[in-house]
Design a protein around this nucleic acid. Structure first.
Length: 126
DNA sequence: GGCGTGACTATAC
DNA sequence: GGTATAGCCACGC
């Protein structure tokens, strides 16, 4: 069959993984790629976000580097937007980086949120 | 099809 | 946690 371009399929998986990030939390590019079924394609996540832009309505501001650092330079406007959006969700950003140990999705309970397919057994309750 | 680039990551010091 | 190095892969030229 005329399968869609692999890159297109990957892009959809990445966008879906990004939207899965709970409010008030952040995830690294590597995690997004891994949850999208593309381990090691962290750079691809960044490319998707760049092409998507704000028009895609993606919570791109919840995506940071593996070290918790904002992917942009502190002097860029994108950095200011991301920092502002995170602050509005309760995520503290200090010196261009967030506390992964506190806001990271890699804590433990959030592991269920990242479940591939819980058949509707989505954990809720805030 | 090689080369440089990039919203990255892991490792070493 | 900052710098340096190596690996990774999609994209434009």
């Amino acid at each position: 069959m005329a399968v869609v371009d692999p890159s297109t399929r990957h892009r959809q998986a990445i966008e879906r993984a990004i939207r899965a990030i709970p409010r008030g939390c952040v995830a690294s590019y590597g995690d997004i790629a891994a949850r999208a079924g593309l381990p090691g394609r962290a750079r691809l996540v960044g490319r998707v976000l760049r092409e998507a832009g704000e028009k895609a309505r993606l919570p791109w501001h919840r995506v940071v580097r593996a070290s918790g650092h904002i992917a942009f330079d502190a002097s860029t406007e994108a950095f200011a937007r991301q920092c502002k959006r995170l602050a509005e969700e309760g995520v503290i950003v200090t010196r261009g980086r967030v506390d992964n140990a506190r806001f990271g999705v890699d804590v433990d309970v959030d592991a269920q949120l990242w479940a591939p397919r819980t058949a509707g057994t989505r954990v809720r309750g805030g």
